[in-house]
Design a protein around this nucleic acid. Sequence first.
DNA 1: GCAAAAGTGTTTGGTCTACACCCATGA
DNA 2: TCATGGGTGTAGACCAAACACTTTTGC
Lengths: 229, 229
Amino acid sequence: MDIDSYTNHQKIIVAVDCIIFGFDGNQLKALLIKRGFEPQKGKWSLMGGFINNNEDADCAAVRVLNKLTGMDNLYMEQLHAFSRVDRDSAGRVISIAYFALINIADYSEQLQVEHEAKWFELSQLPELIFDHTAMVLKAQDLLREKVARHPIGFELLPDKFTLPQLQSLYEAIYETSLDSRNFSKRILSLGVLNKLDEKEKKSSRRGAFYYVFDSIKYKNLEASGVRFV
Amino acid sequence: MDIDSYTNHQKIIVAVDCIIFGFDGNQLKALLIKRGFEPQKGKWSLMGGFINNNEDADCAAVRVLNKLTGMDNLYMEQLHAFSRVDRDSAGRVISIAYFALINIADYSEQLQVEHEAKWFELSQLPELIFDHTAMVLKAQDLLREKVARHPIGFELLPDKFTLPQLQSLYEAIYETSLDSRNFSKRILSLGVLNKLDEKEKKSSRRGAFYYVFDSIKYKNLEASGVRFV
DNA sequence: GCAAAAGTGTTTGGTCTACACCCATGA
DNA sequence: TCATGGGTGTAGACCAAACACTTTTGC
């Protein structure tokens, strides 16, 4: 084997696909698009794109996410490379899947129309092309693992959120129900939330205090293995 | 965009690289090879290879592992796709890294010679080519995460092992020391080890009982979030 | 005044930690 | 008989889970 093996070796198209999670206050959802080109045109699909020679996979994922959402700085993480030889019916394509978290309220109606995109409850996903269903399921597993130990749940909520909102987010992610007394004790005892003087008054007469996540306070705890859920 | 975009799109060489962990009774080690071809010939490197058009990444990793170790059925898991544009000095190559666990005693001297391979303590890695050092460090993180919640530590030991051996494995992985009373209580209380009548007599006069991991008993616990460390 | 959601404390059981001595054996 | 590593129990601290009522306020 010599250097020619490099330049001569079989090359493969490499893509990225993005699982975008959002939370509408009750349900955990994924953003899917109606595929605009063949093969499988018109089927539901993850948003994806090919990796160019002058960009790495993270850049490609950022580009794809930006195209669909108009946003930069989304929380984003590599999930897994999917490489089954026949996974794409049009030819050999390896796809590096990413998952991203987005505050669903920030997602513009207009982009939704432009891309024929739609939020689907995870329990009611339509049939997806290729191996995209497996990608979503794997992303859901990783989300559950991550969210318990890292402060990424907040990415799914507005900057200001109430404890009941945060609780129902965790309930949606884990498909469980939590005791509100134990929940607020544990979360507040971490000391990474700052209570505001302001109340959210839409969802109850009494109103619930807003909190914000304090990433500086969190930094000091990070090493010591915090558990959010 | 249409179907031609598929077949015409820029293609990229895709490789796999394998981080192979072993445990010699005291130290956690990684198996490295002296690279036999340019670029960077003679430098220390992970064992790797290119993905062919007719195989997926897992197959390529199995093939690479088999070539170096002569073994099939190694415990193996995808780690991460490394895709920096300039990561390989000879051209654009995306590498999907895998980590594998091996019982170091099973690794043949002969293959070690053939491939100019050598076991290195993780704290004393030589300089590695490209981004291989980052791969090893990321693999070490994943190993620590996995080993606490999944029964994969046993892959690094012989089928029959003693509690002191298992303890020193965990101590090596986490670079810590554990209390032997607490350790044996926790591990045995999981009920997934079967004690044999036989003793290991090399490392002490008294001898330590051998145990074997019982994967059937483990299956029944799997769902309920077992913690090994 | 009533419906609807927010907010809050205590008890209990289990789990984790810290800690030290005796045992079995080969030399 | 002694040196070496193997094996074991208990008490206290801490953490997690179970559990229900009062508060606020818009209607």
